Simulated scan of single mutants.
Amino acid sequence: MTRPYPHWIVAPTIPARFVREMLGQLRLDADARAALLERCDLPREALRDGYRVAPLNYRALSRLAVGVGDDEALGFFARTVPLGSFEQLLRLLVHLPTLAEAFEEAARFYKLFDDSPPWRLEKHARIARLLLTPRPGAQTDSVLWPHMLLLALWHTGSWLTGEILPLRRIVLPGHLSAFTAQTRFLFGRQPVSPLRHGWSCRR
């Protein structure tokens, strides 16, 4: 029987900045941060530029970070998003008649934690555009946050429709152009530069 290759050989990896931002949101001291990395079989060097993290280790760290911070939004919103909020949101969204209404309702839901919706939906004939609307500060400066948010929207929308939503375009702000390869890996499409500053995806 042929043995599968280890995940670190066949799977693309995640850059250190994603890990650094995630742990930075938790505001842990050095010892607590090192202990959390160790639980995920990651060395302290995982926070240094140039280090790449295997997806299984990164997934484990993401789950632990949400639990340690007791916040599903990892501190990116003005107020804590209690554990279990996303599950309750999905229970609401499955009863809505269209995907557009589901995205708009989800934006209103998360507005409760940040005073303004984190994205807006623009519809043109058969094309829809999701435009992230980050607050100045941690949301605007982050690489992790827009990737995480857009990926969650894409996966949730695909789950609601029962098929993978086709993406026509991913727009990546110029100041994050160094992460083009990571965006292409996550969404399966080469990102383009924006005509204006902002994150968006079209389907």
Rank of each mutant, 00 (worst) to 15 (best):
L83R: 00
L37Q: 00
D141W: 08
R169G: 10
T13V: 11
S193M: 08
F187Q: 05
A78E: 11
V10S: 15
Q190S: 13
D29M: 08
T140C: 10
F86K: 09
R189W: 05
G198Y: 04
R91N: 14
T133L: 13
P194S: 02
V81R: 01
T80Y: 06
L112G: 05
A125E: 15
W8P: 04
L37G: 03
D70C: 04
D49E: 11
R169A: 13
L112M: 11
W159Y: 14
L90E: 12
I14G: 05
L90M: 14
L151S: 07
I170C: 07
A60F: 07
R33D: 05
P6K: 00
W154Y: 09
H197A: 10
S177K: 12
R52M: 10
R135I: 06
R3L: 15
W119N: 06
L47R: 02
F187L: 04
L121Q: 04
R63H: 11
V81G: 00
G162A: 05
W159T: 11
R135M: 07
A32R: 12
E45L: 04
A11Q: 15
I14W: 12
V143C: 07
F86P: 09
F187W: 05
R79L: 00
D31S: 14
R169P: 01
I170E: 02
L132T: 10
R17D: 09
T80W: 01
C40F: 05
C40I: 07
E163A: 14
L176D: 06
A128W: 06
Y51E: 01
R33C: 09
R91T: 09
G50V: 00
A35I: 02
V66S: 03
L195F: 12
P15A: 09
F109M: 03
G137I: 04
E45H: 02
G67D: 09
L89A: 09
S193E: 11
L130Q: 06
G75M: 03
P191D: 05
L172V: 07
P136E: 06
R33S: 08
A73N: 01
Q88M: 08
